[in-house]
Write a protein that binds this DNA or RNA. Sequence first.
DNA 1: AATATATTTCAAGAATCATTGAAATGAAAG
DNA 2: CTTTCATTTCAATGATTCTTGAAATATATT
Lengths: 103, 103
Amino acid sequence: MDETSALTAFAALSNESRLRVVKALVEAGPDGLSAGEIAERLGATPSRASFHLSALADAGLVTSTKQSRSVRYAVRFEAMGGLARYLLEDCCKGNATARSCCG
Amino acid sequence: MDETSALTAFAALSNESRLRVVKALVEAGPDGLSAGEIAERLGATPSRASFHLSALADAGLVTSTKQSRSVRYAVRFEAMGGLARYLLEDCCKGNATARSCCG
DNA sequence: AATATATTTCAAGAATCATTGAAATGAAAG
DNA sequence: CTTTCATTTCAATGATTCTTGAAATATATT
C-alpha cells in the first residue's frame, strides 16, 4: 500500500454512508450483498449507492462481481488490513503504543 | 473510539498535507514540531498549516501545547492505534485476514 | 510603550464531493 | 423482440473543503 492508495482509502472511509456499507458487507460475509440490497439498507437511491460503491471499489476496499443481472459487492479484508498496516507501520513507524491495538 | 470519531479521523488522514504532517511528527519524536516548523516543511503558509493542524487536533490525532510564543504539535499514538483498532475490530469484526497486518 | 515574532481567525473564491432524477446499458423473462 | 429488472452514467445543483491574504491575538524583546 503506497501513500496515494492510503489517501484514497482514508477518503473512502471518511463518509458515513460508505462506512456503513463496509460494515454491512462485513456482517454479510464472503458472499457480500448486491447493489440493490445495499441501497435498501442505506435508504439511498440506486444512483447514490452506486456512487459510494464506486468510491469503495476504486479504493480497493471492496470487490464487485456481476451475477446475472445484479452486482454483488464484498469487502476485501486484505485491503482493510493493508490500511491498518499502513497506519501502524508506515505512519507510526511501528510505535509500540500504536501497535498495542493489535492486542 | 466511536463511529463519529472514526469518521473525523479518516477525514483528517485523507488529505496529503495532513498525512505528511503526521509522518513528520512521528519522525520528530515525543517533542514534536512547532506550527512554524511544520508550515516550513509543508511549504505552506502559516494560515494553511494552522488550518490542517486544527483538523488533526479536532480529530484527536495530535496534541498542541503552547510554549512561550510558539505552539508545539505532537502525534497521539494511542489515537492512531485506536483508529487501527476501530478498522480491525469494529469494522472487520476481528477478521483474521485483516488482522494479519498485526503480524 | 513600541516593535518583532508566532500563530490563529476570518472572509472570499476555487476546487472537490455528494445528492438528485433522468437517461443509458445490459441481462433475463414473457 | 418487447418488456421488466438491476445497475450505472450523466448533468445539474447544493454542500463541504481547501487555499489565500489580510487582520487579529498573544507573547517576547528593545
